[in-house]
Design a protein around this nucleic acid. Structure first.
Length: 657
RNA sequence: GCCUGGAUAGCUCAGUGGUAGAGCAACGCACUCGUAAUGCGUAGGUCGUGGGUUCAAUCCCCACUCCAGGCUCCA
């Protein structure tokens, strides 16, 4: 007798399996069933069900069912590789978001190339056609070792299981390991469960080949990883591939070229961007608005140089921890070492320390759009999101211990508010705690800092997730994570508490008790870097920036030469209002000029012809619309456009993308 | 930094051991057209850089630069 999730109870003969249960419920379910969940534990359909257990039948459309499909497909991938490269070692093949991967080491140092993916897929389809069963077996540790005697990575996993470390893809207890046999040629160490046979699979695609260190450790051998994805149906797979294409269409690097926003001249070096006039306009608007809001929020603006003597970063500790990530020093003036600055904080501390501070002036808030240079490893630079030269909208707040909590609270509000103004509105918070490997300060200081951040984070209504060990070396941080229009999350603003740098630099203020106290420092970047934030906005809006951020807001298109004079009159009025606009004269057919403006993603195209000249009207073609509006009074358009710019919305409305 | 690919006209891409081609863009001329591509013509490339092999290299080999996707990293 077993219980079902809907509360009903079913009687089955003793020793009945999940498959028997599914068949007893219905043919359709028996056909769809992949595995079962017995009292919360996933198991094969062939496993006998204990009397009285709660049994849920897993089908391909459930998240758990998809994972089983993907995991089983990963086994098929491994078998295909072994078939093509006899003697290949296979390591681990877990399920990941949207797919799976499997890591291999090929015999004789062979490497996969992209062309191999097609060949491997073909063999995988053969294996699926062969309708191979997944046959589970359980072994004691020695038995397991014997079974995988020629698979060094599997042996290592068994050893890890033995020693109690619960490794990826390993069985959860320490005395028994399980394996799944597909054919005489292929057995894999695996916890399971799996689909009953390979014929249940088929809607998959191998995506790419990549190198990956064994167990993610740079010092261990690098294996060859094949990424793939699998779905329950052709349609679901196609939909996934379409989503990937959508992300590609939004790629800021592609749009950056198409819309003439920025480029990365090879002459400058990796990760160093130049902003073209249109990209420069977007950037200026972002920065100007940020400045305006910072003035309102009580920040004072400071400026600091791009190079400095080594001493500053010795004091701050950056050279000790991050020398690898800094550009190498320049030797000047009799051996004096100068570094390009990787951080703004030590400079702001010097400004704080430049004179004696009183408790009356705290909190002090210094803001700088500070350009920093970081020597990112060559493999990590990526468009505008990971560069070697970037501008942080950086601020450092110096306050008393008593002010800390309220300052953090208002800061978090400020940050979220500003992000919303830029059109991001789906957030959650992440609290990053002390990194075990590299950290300064006492446990007690970390504890106080972390619990303060936690209480601030929990005071709001946003979801809070923990990121253990993810803090900076000098203190814990809250980061704001934003979901974009296609559901991806980006780490946006970070707010870091720091008890260390004030100590290292020995800064203090005079308190009401006439004695010296050490201020607490809050580091905070809101955009993170202007470059990266711009990239995220471009992708969030798919290039269709809200009107206030669009480099060109209005394109005026006269139908014939005869309407050009009126077109320039319209231009004059809009320019007077501060609108960024231009006229595209009648040297090409109207349709071609409309198309050109649409491709440039300009929010408004105004077409002016005979009737408009007479009536002082315009034809309004909104960016997102297929249907232009005729005979709109010019003055009316000016008013609504001004309102739209003022409210930082888009022709598409408030919720833009 | 490591692995796998890649770099040909402004952009997207084809191509070959005998010094290169398309579409779009640009420019010129004609067209004056009320909402997503008018026609004709012209110009444009040391085939990423530097070495090597060869009678001959854009093509084969080596190194470097830059790009892409991963791994590692991200103050």
């Amino acid at each position: 007798m077993v219980r079902l999730p809907d509360g009903s109870v079913r009687s089955l003969p003793g020793g009945s399996t999940g498959r028997d249960l599914a068949e007893s419920i219905g043919r359709r379910l028996a056909k769809d069933a992949l595995a079962v969940r017995v009292d919360g534990r996933e198991a094969d359909l062939s496993e006998a069900l204990p009397d009285g257990s709660l049994v849920e039948i897993l089908t391909p459309t459930s998240p758990a069912g998809r994972e089983i499909l993907r995991h089983s497909t990963a086994h098929v991938l491994a078998q295909a590789v072994v078939r093509l490269w006899p003697g290949a070692h296979y390591a681990i093949g877990p399920v990941i978001d949207d797919g799976f991967y499997y890591d291999f080491e090929l015999p004789d140092g062979a490497r996969f190339s992209d062309d191999d993916l097609g060949k491997i897929e073909a063999v995988m389809r053969e294996i699926i056609k062969e309708d191979q069963p997944f046959i589970r077996s359980e072994h004691d540790i020695d038995g397991g070792r014997a079974l995988f005697a020629d698979q060094p990575f599997k042996l290592e996993i068994i050893d890890a299981v033995c020693s109690g470390a619960n490794e990826v893809d390993a069985a959860p207890d320490t005395t028994v390991v399980s394996a799944y046999k597909n054919s005489e040629a292929f057995t894999d160490l695996c916890r399971g469960p799996h689909v009953p046979s390979t014929s249940r699979l088929g809607h998959f695609k191998l995506m790419r080949v990549a190198g990956a260190y064994w167990r993610g450790d740079e010092k261990r051998p690098q294996l060859q990883r094949i990424y793939g994805t699998a779905y329950e149906s052709k349609e679901a797979l196609a939909e996934h591939l379409f989503r990937l294409e959508e992300a590609e269409r939004r790629d800021h690097r592609k749009l950056g070229t198409q819309l003439d926003l920025f480029s990365f001249p090879e002459e400058l070096g990796s990760g160093l961007a130049v902003f073209h006039p249109k990209g420069g306009t977007i950037r200026r608007l972002m920065e100007d608005y940020s400045r305006k809001r910072h003035v309102e929020a009580g920040y004072e603006f400071v400026y600091t140089p791009h190079v400095t003597k080594a001493e500053l970063f010795e004091t701050s500790g950056h050279l000790e921890w991050f020398a690898d990530g800094m550009y190498p020093p320049m030797e000047l003036d009799d051996g004096q070492q100068y570094y390009l600055k990787p951080m703004n904080c030590p400079f702001h501390i010097l400004i704080f320390r430049s004179r004696q501070r009183s408790y009356r002036e705290l909190p002090v808030r210094f803001f700088e759009l500070g350009t920093v240079y970081r020597y990112e490893k060559s493999g990590v630079v990526h468009g505008l999101t990971r560069v070697r030269g970037m501008t942080q909208d950086d601020a450092h707040i110096f306050c008393t211990a008593e002010q800390m909590e309220s300052e953090l609270t208002s800061l978090l509000g400020f940050v979220l508010d500003l992000l919303r103004e830029f059109g991001l509105d789906d957030f959650y918070l992440e609290l990053s705690t002390k990194p075990e490997a590299k950290a300064v300060g006492t446990d007690e200081e970390w504890e106080v800092a972390t619990s303060t951040l936690r209480s601030v984070a929990e005071a709001g209504s946003l979801e809070l997730v923990m990121d253990e060990g993810g803090g900076a070396f000098y203190g814990p941080k809250i980061s704001v994570q934003a979901r974009d229009a296609i559901g991806r999350t980006h780490q946006m603003s970070t707010i870091q508490l720091d008890f260390q740098l004030p100590q290292r630099f020995g800064i203090d203020y005079v308190g009401s008790d006439n004695s010296r106290h050490r201020p607490i420092m809050i580091h905070r970047a809101l955009f993170g870097s202007v470059e990266r934030f711009m990239a995220i906005l471009i992708e969030h809006y798919a290039g269709n920036l809200p009107t206030w951020l669009s480099p060109e807001q209005v394109r005026i298109v006269p139908v014939r030469d005869a309407h050009e004079e009126y077109a320039y009159e319209v231009l004059g009025g809009l320019s007077h209002d501060g609108v960024r606009c231009s006229v595209d004269g009648a040297s090409e057919p109207l349709g071609a000029r409309i198309r050109k403006a649409k491709m440039e993603k300009i929010p408004y195209i105004l077409v002016v012809g005979d009737s408009d000249v007479d009536a002082r009207t315009i034809g309004v073609n909104r960016r997102s619309s297929e249907h232009p509006e005729r005979d709109v009074p010019l003055e009316k358009f000016r008013v609504t456009l001004a309102a739209e710019i003022e409210s930082r919305t888009a022709p598409e409305g408030v919720v833009t993308p």
